[in-house]
Nucleic acid binder design. Structure first.
Lengths: 229, 229
DNA sequence: CTTTGTACGATTGTATACAATGATGCAATT
DNA sequence: AATTGCATCATTGTATACAATCGTACAAAG
Protein backbone atom coordinates (compact mmCIF):
# COMPACT_ATOMS: atom_id res chain seq x y z
CA UNK A 1 0.00 0.00 0.00
CA UNK A 2 2.46 2.10 -0.63
CA UNK A 3 2.10 5.37 0.83
CA UNK A 4 -0.82 7.01 0.26
CA UNK A 5 -2.87 8.95 -1.54
CA UNK A 6 -0.10 9.14 -1.02
CA UNK A 7 -1.42 6.85 -3.72
CA UNK A 8 -3.41 8.02 -6.63
CA UNK A 9 -6.24 6.81 -8.69
CA UNK A 10 -3.78 4.51 -10.21
CA UNK A 11 -5.18 1.49 -11.91
CA UNK A 12 -6.80 2.62 -15.10
CA UNK A 13 -8.90 -0.26 -16.19
CA UNK A 14 -8.24 0.01 -19.85
CA UNK A 15 -4.52 -0.13 -20.29
CA UNK A 16 -2.97 -3.54 -20.46
CA UNK A 17 -0.89 -2.70 -17.45
CA UNK A 18 -4.01 -1.79 -15.49
CA UNK A 19 -5.67 -5.03 -16.45
CA UNK A 20 -2.65 -7.07 -15.52
CA UNK A 21 -2.34 -5.23 -12.23
CA UNK A 22 -5.94 -5.84 -11.28
CA UNK A 23 -5.84 -9.44 -12.34
CA UNK A 24 -2.78 -10.35 -10.30
CA UNK A 25 -4.00 -8.39 -7.31
CA UNK A 26 -7.29 -10.18 -7.51
CA UNK A 27 -5.56 -13.53 -7.74
CA UNK A 28 -3.39 -12.82 -4.74
CA UNK A 29 -6.20 -11.54 -2.58
CA UNK A 30 -8.45 -14.40 -3.56
CA UNK A 31 -5.79 -16.89 -2.70
CA UNK A 32 -5.08 -18.25 -6.16
CA UNK A 33 -1.49 -17.24 -5.73
CA UNK A 34 -0.21 -18.14 -2.32
CA UNK A 35 2.56 -16.92 -0.14
CA UNK A 36 6.00 -17.34 -1.68
CA UNK A 37 4.61 -18.29 -5.03
CA UNK A 38 6.89 -17.10 -7.78
CA UNK A 39 5.34 -14.98 -10.47
CA UNK A 40 7.07 -15.18 -13.82
CA UNK A 41 6.73 -12.37 -16.26
CA UNK A 42 6.47 -14.53 -19.33
CA UNK A 43 4.00 -16.99 -17.85
CA UNK A 44 1.67 -14.25 -16.70
CA UNK A 45 2.11 -12.39 -19.94
CA UNK A 46 1.12 -15.43 -21.95
CA UNK A 47 -1.77 -16.18 -19.68
CA UNK A 48 -3.18 -12.73 -20.28
CA UNK A 49 -2.04 -12.44 -23.85
CA UNK A 50 0.30 -9.52 -23.38
CA UNK A 51 4.02 -8.98 -23.56
CA UNK A 52 6.39 -8.68 -20.63
CA UNK A 53 6.41 -4.90 -20.59
CA UNK A 54 2.97 -4.25 -19.08
CA UNK A 55 3.50 -7.20 -16.77
CA UNK A 56 6.69 -5.72 -15.47
CA UNK A 57 5.09 -2.37 -14.85
CA UNK A 58 2.26 -4.04 -13.01
CA UNK A 59 4.81 -5.93 -10.91
CA UNK A 60 6.47 -2.69 -9.86
CA UNK A 61 3.15 -1.39 -8.66
CA UNK A 62 2.23 -4.56 -6.89
CA UNK A 63 5.51 -4.35 -5.09
CA UNK A 64 4.65 -0.94 -3.75
CA UNK A 65 1.26 -2.24 -2.77
CA UNK A 66 3.14 -4.77 -0.73
CA UNK A 67 1.50 -7.72 -2.41
CA UNK A 68 4.64 -9.05 -3.99
CA UNK A 69 8.32 -8.70 -3.36
CA UNK A 70 10.75 -8.35 -6.19
CA UNK A 71 14.20 -9.77 -5.79
CA UNK A 72 16.48 -8.16 -8.37
CA UNK A 73 17.56 -10.50 -11.12
CA UNK A 74 15.69 -13.27 -9.49
CA UNK A 75 11.98 -12.97 -9.47
CA UNK A 76 8.74 -11.75 -7.98
CA UNK A 77 7.30 -13.51 -4.98
CA UNK A 78 3.95 -13.21 -3.29
CA UNK A 79 4.49 -11.68 0.11
CA UNK A 80 3.04 -13.20 3.17
CA UNK A 81 1.42 -11.38 6.01
CA UNK A 82 2.64 -12.33 9.42
CA UNK A 83 0.46 -12.44 12.47
CA UNK A 84 2.32 -9.38 13.70
CA UNK A 85 1.48 -7.52 10.52
CA UNK A 86 -2.16 -8.30 10.96
CA UNK A 87 -2.10 -7.11 14.51
CA UNK A 88 -0.31 -3.91 13.54
CA UNK A 89 -2.75 -3.22 10.79
CA UNK A 90 -5.70 -3.61 13.10
CA UNK A 91 -4.15 -1.36 15.71
CA UNK A 92 -3.43 1.26 13.10
CA UNK A 93 -6.83 0.85 11.56
CA UNK A 94 -8.55 1.26 14.86
CA UNK A 95 -6.94 4.67 15.30
CA UNK A 96 -7.57 5.80 11.77
CA UNK A 97 -11.06 4.45 11.59
CA UNK A 98 -11.82 6.51 14.68
CA UNK A 99 -10.43 9.59 13.03
CA UNK A 100 -12.45 8.80 9.95
CA UNK A 101 -15.68 8.47 11.89
CA UNK A 102 -15.02 11.75 13.65
CA UNK A 103 -14.46 13.54 10.37
CA UNK A 104 -17.52 11.91 8.91
CA UNK A 105 -19.65 13.78 11.43
CA UNK A 106 -18.81 16.97 9.64
CA UNK A 107 -18.76 15.78 6.10
CA UNK A 108 -21.12 12.91 5.56
CA UNK A 109 -23.85 13.47 3.00
CA UNK A 110 -27.48 12.57 3.41
CA UNK A 111 -27.14 9.96 0.70
CA UNK A 112 -24.27 8.30 2.50
CA UNK A 113 -26.14 8.28 5.78
CA UNK A 114 -29.10 6.76 4.07
CA UNK A 115 -27.02 4.05 2.47
CA UNK A 116 -25.52 3.28 5.85
CA UNK A 117 -28.93 2.89 7.43
CA UNK A 118 -30.08 0.66 4.63
CA UNK A 119 -26.88 -1.35 4.93
CA UNK A 120 -27.42 -1.89 8.64
CA UNK A 121 -31.03 -2.79 8.18
CA UNK A 122 -30.26 -5.36 5.55
CA UNK A 123 -27.29 -6.72 7.47
CA UNK A 124 -29.54 -7.37 10.44
CA UNK A 125 -31.60 -9.63 8.25
CA UNK A 126 -28.66 -11.63 6.99
CA UNK A 127 -26.84 -11.72 10.30
CA UNK A 128 -29.76 -13.31 12.06
CA UNK A 129 -29.94 -15.97 9.40
CA UNK A 130 -26.24 -16.68 9.25
CA UNK A 131 -25.78 -15.64 5.64
CA UNK A 132 -22.04 -15.15 5.90
CA UNK A 133 -21.45 -14.30 2.29
CA UNK A 134 -23.84 -11.38 2.31
CA UNK A 135 -22.69 -10.27 5.75
CA UNK A 136 -19.11 -9.99 4.56
CA UNK A 137 -20.24 -8.04 1.54
CA UNK A 138 -22.33 -5.64 3.58
CA UNK A 139 -19.63 -5.23 6.17
CA UNK A 140 -17.12 -4.25 3.51
CA UNK A 141 -19.55 -1.84 2.00
CA UNK A 142 -20.34 -0.22 5.34
CA UNK A 143 -16.71 0.57 5.91
CA UNK A 144 -16.32 1.81 2.38
CA UNK A 145 -19.12 4.28 2.86
CA UNK A 146 -17.58 5.38 6.11
CA UNK A 147 -14.24 5.95 4.40
CA UNK A 148 -15.82 7.93 1.63
CA UNK A 149 -17.79 10.06 4.04
CA UNK A 150 -14.77 11.50 5.84
CA UNK A 151 -14.04 13.79 2.92
CA UNK A 152 -10.33 13.13 2.94
CA UNK A 153 -8.93 11.42 -0.11
CA UNK A 154 -5.82 10.75 1.87
CA UNK A 155 -7.46 8.96 4.75
CA UNK A 156 -9.98 7.28 2.51
CA UNK A 157 -7.33 5.75 0.36
CA UNK A 158 -5.24 4.70 3.30
CA UNK A 159 -8.12 2.93 4.98
CA UNK A 160 -9.27 1.28 1.78
CA UNK A 161 -5.79 -0.08 1.27
CA UNK A 162 -5.62 -1.49 4.75
CA UNK A 163 -9.08 -2.88 4.53
CA UNK A 164 -8.32 -4.64 1.31
CA UNK A 165 -5.00 -5.80 2.59
CA UNK A 166 -6.50 -7.78 5.42
CA UNK A 167 -9.18 -9.35 3.26
CA UNK A 168 -6.70 -12.10 2.57
CA UNK A 169 -6.63 -13.01 6.21
CA UNK A 170 -10.26 -12.44 6.95
CA UNK A 171 -11.21 -15.13 4.52
CA UNK A 172 -9.26 -17.61 6.55
CA UNK A 173 -11.02 -16.84 9.79
CA UNK A 174 -14.46 -17.93 10.60
CA UNK A 175 -17.34 -15.63 11.17
CA UNK A 176 -20.03 -16.42 13.65
CA UNK A 177 -23.61 -15.40 13.86
CA UNK A 178 -23.05 -13.78 17.24
CA UNK A 179 -20.19 -11.67 16.01
CA UNK A 180 -22.19 -10.72 12.94
CA UNK A 181 -25.02 -9.43 15.03
CA UNK A 182 -22.75 -7.65 17.46
CA UNK A 183 -20.73 -6.11 14.65
CA UNK A 184 -23.81 -4.83 12.95
CA UNK A 185 -25.00 -3.34 16.19
CA UNK A 186 -21.69 -1.53 16.47
CA UNK A 187 -22.15 -0.24 12.97
CA UNK A 188 -25.49 1.13 13.99
CA UNK A 189 -24.08 2.92 17.00
CA UNK A 190 -21.33 4.45 14.90
CA UNK A 191 -23.85 5.56 12.36
CA UNK A 192 -26.05 7.13 15.01
CA UNK A 193 -23.15 9.01 16.53
CA UNK A 194 -22.29 10.38 13.11
CA UNK A 195 -25.89 11.24 12.46
CA UNK A 196 -26.03 13.08 15.78
CA UNK A 197 -22.84 14.93 14.77
CA UNK A 198 -21.04 13.68 17.83
CA UNK A 199 -17.42 13.19 16.78
CA UNK A 200 -16.18 12.05 20.17
CA UNK A 201 -18.65 9.21 20.34
CA UNK A 202 -18.16 8.34 16.71
CA UNK A 203 -14.43 8.13 17.13
CA UNK A 204 -14.59 6.06 20.26
CA UNK A 205 -17.16 3.66 18.85
CA UNK A 206 -15.31 3.16 15.58
CA UNK A 207 -12.07 2.53 17.40
CA UNK A 208 -13.68 -0.02 19.66
CA UNK A 209 -15.38 -1.63 16.71
CA UNK A 210 -12.09 -2.39 14.99
CA UNK A 211 -10.56 -3.61 18.20
CA UNK A 212 -13.49 -5.94 18.66
CA UNK A 213 -13.17 -7.19 15.12
CA UNK A 214 -9.56 -8.00 15.79
CA UNK A 215 -10.28 -9.72 19.07
CA UNK A 216 -12.91 -11.80 17.38
CA UNK A 217 -10.49 -12.72 14.65
CA UNK A 218 -7.90 -13.87 17.14
CA UNK A 219 -10.46 -15.83 19.08
CA UNK A 220 -11.73 -17.56 15.98
CA UNK A 221 -8.55 -19.00 14.78
CA UNK A 222 -6.18 -16.45 13.32
CA UNK A 223 -3.27 -18.44 14.63
CA UNK A 224 -4.66 -21.71 13.42
CA UNK A 225 -5.22 -20.27 10.00
CA UNK A 226 -1.53 -19.59 9.92
CA UNK A 227 -0.12 -22.65 11.52
CA UNK A 228 -2.12 -24.84 9.19
CA UNK A 229 -0.21 -23.92 6.11
CA UNK B 1 1.77 5.78 -0.45
CA UNK B 2 0.47 2.69 -1.31
CA UNK B 3 -0.57 1.22 1.61
CA UNK B 4 2.08 0.22 3.47
CA UNK B 5 4.54 -1.79 4.12
CA UNK B 6 2.03 -2.25 2.69
CA UNK B 7 5.07 -1.04 0.80
CA UNK B 8 8.26 -2.92 0.66
CA UNK B 9 11.89 -2.17 0.67
CA UNK B 10 11.35 -1.13 -2.80
CA UNK B 11 14.00 1.04 -4.29
CA UNK B 12 17.06 -1.05 -4.77
CA UNK B 13 19.81 1.42 -5.27
CA UNK B 14 21.65 -0.41 -7.95
CA UNK B 15 19.17 -1.09 -10.68
CA UNK B 16 18.68 1.65 -13.19
CA UNK B 17 15.06 1.81 -12.24
CA UNK B 18 15.97 2.30 -8.61
CA UNK B 19 18.32 5.09 -9.46
CA UNK B 20 15.80 6.80 -11.67
CA UNK B 21 13.16 6.44 -9.00
CA UNK B 22 15.33 7.96 -6.31
CA UNK B 23 16.53 10.75 -8.52
CA UNK B 24 13.09 11.91 -9.57
CA UNK B 25 11.74 11.57 -6.07
CA UNK B 26 14.61 13.64 -4.79
CA UNK B 27 14.03 16.26 -7.45
CA UNK B 28 10.37 16.51 -6.64
CA UNK B 29 10.86 16.71 -2.90
CA UNK B 30 13.66 19.23 -3.26
CA UNK B 31 11.52 21.39 -5.43
CA UNK B 32 13.44 21.07 -8.67
CA UNK B 33 10.32 19.76 -10.30
CA UNK B 34 7.33 21.79 -9.30
CA UNK B 35 3.65 21.14 -9.17
CA UNK B 36 2.14 20.33 -12.55
CA UNK B 37 5.50 20.03 -14.22
CA UNK B 38 5.38 17.47 -16.97
CA UNK B 39 7.93 14.70 -16.84
CA UNK B 40 8.83 13.24 -20.20
CA UNK B 41 10.20 9.77 -20.40
CA UNK B 42 12.75 10.49 -23.08
CA UNK B 43 14.02 13.69 -21.53
CA UNK B 44 14.56 12.06 -18.16
CA UNK B 45 16.03 9.01 -19.76
CA UNK B 46 18.56 11.07 -21.65
CA UNK B 47 19.37 13.13 -18.61
CA UNK B 48 20.22 9.99 -16.70
CA UNK B 49 21.64 8.10 -19.60
CA UNK B 50 19.10 5.30 -19.62
CA UNK B 51 16.38 4.16 -21.92
CA UNK B 52 12.67 4.72 -21.47
CA UNK B 53 12.00 1.33 -19.91
CA UNK B 54 13.46 1.93 -16.45
CA UNK B 55 12.06 5.45 -16.51
CA UNK B 56 8.60 4.15 -17.17
CA UNK B 57 8.85 1.64 -14.35
CA UNK B 58 10.03 4.34 -12.00
CA UNK B 59 7.09 6.49 -13.08
CA UNK B 60 4.66 3.76 -12.16
CA UNK B 61 6.14 3.60 -8.70
CA UNK B 62 6.19 7.33 -8.26
CA UNK B 63 2.55 7.35 -9.16
CA UNK B 64 1.76 4.96 -6.34
CA UNK B 65 3.86 7.09 -4.04
CA UNK B 66 1.56 9.90 -4.99
CA UNK B 67 4.37 12.11 -6.21
CA UNK B 68 3.26 12.17 -9.81
CA UNK B 69 0.07 11.55 -11.63
CA UNK B 70 0.05 9.68 -14.89
CA UNK B 71 -2.56 10.57 -17.45
CA UNK B 72 -2.85 7.71 -19.92
CA UNK B 73 -1.49 8.49 -23.33
CA UNK B 74 -0.67 11.97 -22.22
CA UNK B 75 2.03 12.25 -19.67
CA UNK B 76 3.27 12.30 -16.11
CA UNK B 77 2.67 15.36 -13.98
CA UNK B 78 4.02 16.31 -10.60
CA UNK B 79 1.15 16.26 -8.15
CA UNK B 80 0.51 19.11 -5.86
CA UNK B 81 -0.35 18.88 -2.23
CA UNK B 82 -3.29 20.95 -1.15
CA UNK B 83 -3.55 22.68 2.18
CA UNK B 84 -6.22 20.15 3.07
CA UNK B 85 -3.87 17.29 2.28
CA UNK B 86 -1.26 18.74 4.58
CA UNK B 87 -3.77 19.14 7.33
CA UNK B 88 -5.01 15.59 6.87
CA UNK B 89 -1.51 14.23 6.93
CA UNK B 90 -0.69 15.98 10.16
CA UNK B 91 -3.88 14.79 11.80
CA UNK B 92 -3.18 11.25 10.71
CA UNK B 93 0.43 11.52 11.71
CA UNK B 94 -0.44 12.79 15.14
CA UNK B 95 -2.48 9.65 15.77
CA UNK B 96 0.07 7.28 14.35
CA UNK B 97 3.02 8.96 15.91
CA UNK B 98 1.29 8.54 19.26
CA UNK B 99 0.82 4.87 18.56
CA UNK B 100 4.43 4.61 17.54
CA UNK B 101 5.68 6.23 20.73
CA UNK B 102 3.52 3.92 22.80
CA UNK B 103 4.91 0.88 21.04
CA UNK B 104 8.41 2.21 21.38
CA UNK B 105 8.10 1.91 25.16
CA UNK B 106 8.10 -1.83 24.75
CA UNK B 107 10.53 -2.23 21.93
CA UNK B 108 13.10 0.52 21.90
CA UNK B 109 16.70 -0.61 22.20
CA UNK B 110 19.31 0.94 24.42
CA UNK B 111 21.21 2.13 21.37
CA UNK B 112 18.17 3.89 20.02
CA UNK B 113 17.49 5.54 23.34
CA UNK B 114 21.04 6.70 23.50
CA UNK B 115 20.93 8.14 20.01
CA UNK B 116 17.76 9.98 20.95
CA UNK B 117 19.39 11.52 23.98
CA UNK B 118 22.38 12.56 21.98
CA UNK B 119 20.11 13.98 19.32
CA UNK B 120 18.23 16.06 21.84
CA UNK B 121 21.38 17.26 23.49
CA UNK B 122 22.88 18.36 20.21
CA UNK B 123 19.64 19.89 19.00
CA UNK B 124 19.54 22.06 22.10
CA UNK B 125 22.84 23.54 21.07
CA UNK B 126 21.75 24.34 17.55
CA UNK B 127 18.27 25.48 18.50
CA UNK B 128 19.60 28.10 20.85
CA UNK B 129 21.84 29.44 18.13
CA UNK B 130 19.27 29.44 15.38
CA UNK B 131 21.08 26.91 13.20
CA UNK B 132 18.03 26.00 11.17
CA UNK B 133 19.75 23.66 8.80
CA UNK B 134 21.08 21.43 11.56
CA UNK B 135 17.84 21.63 13.50
CA UNK B 136 15.87 20.35 10.55
CA UNK B 137 18.32 17.54 10.11
CA UNK B 138 18.22 16.55 13.77
CA UNK B 139 14.46 16.81 13.89
CA UNK B 140 14.12 14.44 10.96
CA UNK B 141 16.53 12.05 12.52
CA UNK B 142 14.74 12.09 15.86
CA UNK B 143 11.53 11.05 14.25
CA UNK B 144 13.28 8.42 12.21
CA UNK B 145 14.69 6.84 15.34
CA UNK B 146 11.28 6.93 16.90
CA UNK B 147 9.77 5.19 13.89
CA UNK B 148 12.42 2.53 13.91
CA UNK B 149 12.01 1.92 17.61
CA UNK B 150 8.37 0.88 17.45
CA UNK B 151 9.32 -2.49 16.03
CA UNK B 152 6.61 -2.48 13.39
CA UNK B 153 7.80 -2.43 9.81
CA UNK B 154 4.29 -1.51 8.84
CA UNK B 155 3.97 1.54 11.03
CA UNK B 156 7.56 2.53 10.49
CA UNK B 157 7.18 2.60 6.77
CA UNK B 158 3.89 4.42 6.92
CA UNK B 159 5.27 7.15 9.11
CA UNK B 160 8.43 7.51 7.09
CA UNK B 161 6.37 7.95 3.98
CA UNK B 162 4.24 10.61 5.56
CA UNK B 163 7.21 12.33 7.05
CA UNK B 164 8.97 12.48 3.75
CA UNK B 165 5.85 13.50 1.97
CA UNK B 166 5.46 16.67 3.96
CA UNK B 167 9.10 17.63 3.62
CA UNK B 168 8.12 19.41 0.46
CA UNK B 169 5.86 21.70 2.40
CA UNK B 170 8.05 22.09 5.43
CA UNK B 171 10.73 23.63 3.32
CA UNK B 172 8.33 26.38 2.38
CA UNK B 173 7.49 27.31 5.92
CA UNK B 174 9.77 29.18 8.20
CA UNK B 175 11.19 27.82 11.37
CA UNK B 176 11.76 29.99 14.37
CA UNK B 177 14.17 29.72 17.21
CA UNK B 178 11.35 29.58 19.75
CA UNK B 179 9.63 26.73 17.98
CA UNK B 180 12.93 24.95 17.66
CA UNK B 181 13.53 25.09 21.37
CA UNK B 182 9.97 24.14 22.21
CA UNK B 183 10.03 21.27 19.73
CA UNK B 184 13.22 19.91 21.13
CA UNK B 185 11.81 20.10 24.61
CA UNK B 186 8.84 18.08 23.43
CA UNK B 187 11.22 15.53 21.98
CA UNK B 188 12.86 15.26 25.34
CA UNK B 189 9.60 14.66 27.14
CA UNK B 190 8.63 12.00 24.64
CA UNK B 191 11.98 10.34 25.06
CA UNK B 192 11.70 10.38 28.84
CA UNK B 193 8.24 8.86 28.73
CA UNK B 194 9.56 6.09 26.52
CA UNK B 195 12.55 5.61 28.76
CA UNK B 196 10.22 5.36 31.74
CA UNK B 197 8.19 2.77 29.81
CA UNK B 198 5.08 4.83 30.15
CA UNK B 199 3.10 4.28 26.95
CA UNK B 200 0.17 6.49 27.89
CA UNK B 201 2.38 9.51 28.42
CA UNK B 202 4.48 8.74 25.38
CA UNK B 203 1.44 8.48 23.19
CA UNK B 204 -0.12 11.66 24.47
CA UNK B 205 3.10 13.64 24.21
CA UNK B 206 3.88 12.46 20.71
CA UNK B 207 0.37 13.25 19.56
CA UNK B 208 0.54 16.72 20.99
CA UNK B 209 3.96 17.22 19.51
CA UNK B 210 2.72 16.68 15.97
CA UNK B 211 -0.30 18.85 16.58
CA UNK B 212 1.99 21.61 17.79
CA UNK B 213 4.20 21.23 14.77
CA UNK B 214 1.18 21.63 12.57
CA UNK B 215 -0.10 24.66 14.46
CA UNK B 216 3.29 26.26 14.16
CA UNK B 217 3.37 25.55 10.49
CA UNK B 218 0.01 27.18 9.97
CA UNK B 219 1.02 30.17 12.04
CA UNK B 220 4.21 30.62 10.12
CA UNK B 221 2.78 30.92 6.73
CA UNK B 222 1.57 27.65 5.31
CA UNK B 223 -1.17 29.50 3.50
CA UNK B 224 1.17 32.17 2.25
CA UNK B 225 3.55 29.56 0.99
CA UNK B 226 0.73 28.30 -1.13
CA UNK B 227 -0.91 31.47 -2.28
CA UNK B 228 2.43 32.79 -3.43
CA UNK B 229 2.79 30.41 -6.26
C1' DC C 1 -13.61 36.34 -37.69
C1' DT C 2 -14.96 31.90 -36.19
C1' DT C 3 -15.29 27.19 -36.78
C1' DT C 4 -14.21 22.73 -38.39
C1' DG C 5 -11.42 19.32 -40.44
C1' DT C 6 -7.16 17.31 -41.37
C1' DA C 7 -2.42 16.33 -41.34
C1' DC C 8 1.59 16.25 -38.80
C1' DG C 9 4.50 15.81 -34.82
C1' DA C 10 5.36 14.64 -30.21
C1' DT C 11 4.61 11.39 -26.66
C1' DT C 12 3.10 7.42 -24.56
C1' DG C 13 1.72 2.22 -24.96
C1' DT C 14 3.29 -2.22 -26.23
C1' DA C 15 6.17 -5.81 -28.22
C1' DT C 16 10.42 -7.75 -29.03
C1' DA C 17 15.45 -8.28 -29.21
C1' DC C 18 19.56 -8.50 -26.79
C1' DA C 19 22.50 -8.32 -22.44
C1' DA C 20 23.31 -9.59 -17.77
C1' DT C 21 22.51 -12.31 -13.95
C1' DG C 22 21.67 -16.28 -11.13
C1' DA C 23 20.51 -21.31 -10.59
C1' DT C 24 21.45 -25.95 -11.77
C1' DG C 25 23.75 -30.07 -13.18
C1' DC C 26 27.69 -32.44 -14.22
C1' DA C 27 32.32 -33.52 -14.66
C1' DA C 28 36.97 -33.10 -13.03
C1' DT C 29 39.85 -32.80 -9.15
C1' DT C 30 41.22 -33.64 -4.54
C1' DA D 1 32.55 -38.63 -1.19
C1' DA D 2 32.98 -33.79 -1.18
C1' DT D 3 34.19 -29.77 -3.56
C1' DT D 4 35.25 -26.83 -7.18
C1' DG D 5 34.83 -25.09 -11.86
C1' DC D 6 32.40 -24.61 -15.90
C1' DA D 7 28.76 -24.83 -19.18
C1' DT D 8 24.08 -24.24 -19.88
C1' DC D 9 19.64 -22.54 -19.35
C1' DA D 10 15.94 -19.97 -17.44
C1' DT D 11 14.74 -15.49 -16.02
C1' DT D 12 15.09 -10.77 -15.33
C1' DG D 13 17.20 -6.06 -16.83
C1' DT D 14 17.57 -2.86 -20.47
C1' DA D 15 17.27 -0.93 -25.07
C1' DT D 16 14.94 -0.22 -29.12
C1' DA D 17 11.39 -0.59 -32.70
C1' DC D 18 6.79 -0.06 -33.91
C1' DA D 19 1.77 1.13 -32.93
C1' DA D 20 -1.68 4.04 -30.90
C1' DT D 21 -3.11 8.30 -29.12
C1' DC D 22 -3.35 13.13 -28.25
C1' DG D 23 -2.38 18.01 -29.15
C1' DT D 24 -1.54 21.59 -32.32
C1' DA D 25 -1.12 24.25 -36.36
C1' DC D 26 -2.98 25.54 -40.33
C1' DA D 27 -6.04 25.77 -44.03
C1' DA D 28 -10.63 25.71 -45.90
C1' DA D 29 -15.45 26.71 -45.30
C1' DG D 30 -19.05 29.29 -43.31
Amino acid sequence: MGSYDLKQEVTDKYSLRGRVFNKIREDILSGKYKENDELKEIAIGEELGVSRTPVREAFRQLELEGLIQIVPNKGAYVTGITIEDVKDIYMIRSKLEGLCAAWACEHITDEQLEEMEENIYLAKFHAERGHFEQMAELDSRFHEILYESCNSKMLEHLLKDFHQYVQRVRKKTLSTTERGIASNHEHQMIMEAIKAKNPEDAERLATVHINNAYKNMVKNGLKEAYSNE
